[in-house]
Design a protein around this nucleic acid. Structure first.
Lengths: 81, 81
DNA sequence: GAGAATTTGTACGTATGTATG
DNA sequence: ACATACATACGTACAAATTCT
């Protein structure tokens, strides 16, 4: 059903979110858009939204807490940044 | 559809596979059971089988190679073991 | 405090892409 | 040409804890 894709959806989503974090649009300690929010804004499935957020978590930019949300990590803990 | 589960399926699957690796049942350099194999043996879905293998990869016990399979890491590279 | 909604996590199913054998 | 195998991507459902009304 999907024609042709130069890159990966979850990477694009993660890259966009990362830019917003680093630009201060999502300040540290605050809550990121939820999985559902990401699904709606980027029009992707849950797996893709989740994968993108998990990728940011692996990079240490955010922390996902069950039942609470995804929170931006304090700048001090960011990698190189 | 699922009643109640004390722990997590993917953890049980990963634990079982890990035991087999450490016991030498799956020797280093050789190919592990594929995702499909894991699905059939443990009677789990693809996501669960994949998640279990990815967990082993994060632990450094195996390496997943696209189109080839999942291979056991040499003992020297195992964590603590 | 009660109930509804939200949110992450787990789990299942399916289809397609890409590379290998 | 075909089967295999991992990777990506879609959808759905339920659980558990938290948050909001």
């Amino acid at each position: 059903m999907i024609k042709w894709r130069p890159s990966h959806l979850w990477e694009e989503v993660a890259a966009t979110l990362r830019t917003r974090i680093e630009s201060g649009q999502y300040p540290p300690q605050t809550r990121m858009p939820s999985i559902r929010d990401v699904m709606q804004e980027f029009e992707v499935g849950k797996n893709t939204a989740l994968h993108a957020l998990e990728h940011l978590e692996e990079q240490g930019l955010v922390v996902m807490v069950q039942s609470q949300g995804t929170f931006v990590t304090p700048r001090e803990e960011w990698p190189q940044a």
